[in-house]
Simulated assay, not measured.
Amino acid sequence: MDIYQHFRKEEHPFIDQVLSWKDQVERNFQVKLSDFLDPREQKIFKTIIGNNPEFTWNLVGGGETAERKRAVLAPYYELLEENRFEITLLEGTYPTKFISLSHRDVLGAILSLGIKRKKLGDLYVDNGVIQVIVASEIEPFIKMNLTHIKNAQITFEEKPFSSIMEKNDEWISSHTTVSSLRLDVVVKEMYNVSRQIAAASIQKGLVKVNFRVVDSPAFVLEEGDLLSLRGKGRAKLSDIHGLSKKEKWKITFEKLK
């Protein structure tokens, strides 16, 4: 079976990477630890590795509702204990009376240090508390260098994962029909905007599909795709139910409340 035919062309490099990990574990009995994977990458990883009895694997992101996770792939006889995933929870506080910080502010401050997004897991900002899950190898660097965000002075400390602020996301489900699975057509329905506004937003780089900017209105969506429109929140194409008698696609999508 050609695994590539089941995924988009732009995903082929990541498929090659997972196949390389698989080969190294199989040939050299190595244990492979990935960077943080987004949900789409996790799906690809699971599809390629499957239930092969020669391997043991898991995905861990620090909490029950973690979105971004590190993968460990190992020979079947290995025990994948928690410390094998090498993730750390850092927490800092700031005075909400004097300053307001958003998820975007914190992420931007971390990335401005030259840290790559793949080294970061989930990030939470709420009521003066910042929690960020990081690859353990960059923990000392962040603690030493991330001392200010905007005008707030912040000191990050390692915390146990038992203290993590879990997400309580609520998704609202809707059923509709669309003339095609083009990105502009589906964005129009999901966000209740005109098709012209949907297309313009896409072309301006305001729309992401599976955490990557897509600037082509003609991009064709697939079941399970996660979308976001800047300023309008997240949505996901949960199910594609096939064509109606009027040759329209019946879909179910969810929007984050």
Score class of each variant (00 low, 15 high):
P75S: 09
F85I: 05
R68P: 05
V18E: 08
E222S: 15
Q5S: 15
W249R: 06
I164Y: 06
L120W: 01
E91M: 01
T155M: 10
L89A: 03
L79V: 15
H6W: 13
L111N: 02
F7E: 09
D16A: 10
L206C: 07
T65M: 11
L90W: 00
L90G: 00
G242Q: 03
A152S: 11
G50S: 02
T147I: 12
M190E: 08
K32R: 14
L123K: 07
G114T: 00
M144W: 04
Q203A: 11
Q17Y: 14
L183K: 04
D126H: 12
L256V: 04
L90H: 00
E189L: 09
L37W: 02
K119S: 12
T252K: 12
K43N: 12
M1Q: 13
E86W: 01
L79M: 14
D184Q: 04
N83Y: 12
V185Q: 10
K150L: 08
N151L: 11
V207P: 09
L90E: 01
Y191I: 05
D239Q: 15
D122Q: 03
S194P: 08
N51S: 13
K232R: 14
K150N: 11
L226E: 12
G242I: 02
K236G: 10
A199H: 06
G231D: 07
Q196C: 10
T177L: 03
F85V: 06
I172L: 15
I110N: 04
F55D: 01
I240D: 07
S238N: 12
L19N: 07
E10V: 10
F29A: 15
V125E: 00
E26H: 14
P160V: 07
Q153E: 14
I154L: 09
I251G: 06
E139F: 05
L37P: 01
D16Y: 09
K257E: 15
H12P: 09
K167W: 09
S100C: 08
K143G: 02
E78P: 05
I149G: 00
K119E: 10
H103F: 00
D2E: 14
T96P: 00
E41M: 12
G224P: 08
E137H: 12
E158V: 00
S174T: 13
V185H: 08
L123P: 06
G128A: 08
K22L: 07
D35N: 13
L101S: 01
D184I: 07
T155G: 04
K69F: 04
E189D: 11
P75G: 04
W57M: 03
P53M: 02
K232L: 11
R104L: 12
K69A: 05
Q196R: 15
P13W: 03
N168G: 11
L237R: 01
D184Y: 06
T47V: 13
I142V: 08
R104K: 14
L206H: 11
K208I: 07
G231I: 03
P13N: 04
R104M: 10
T176A: 09
I172D: 12
L183E: 02
A200S: 14
E78G: 08
Q196W: 11
N151E: 13
E157C: 10
I142A: 00
E223T: 06
N145L: 02
Y77L: 13
L243M: 14
P53Y: 02
Q131P: 06
I133M: 08
D122C: 07
V185S: 12
T93D: 08
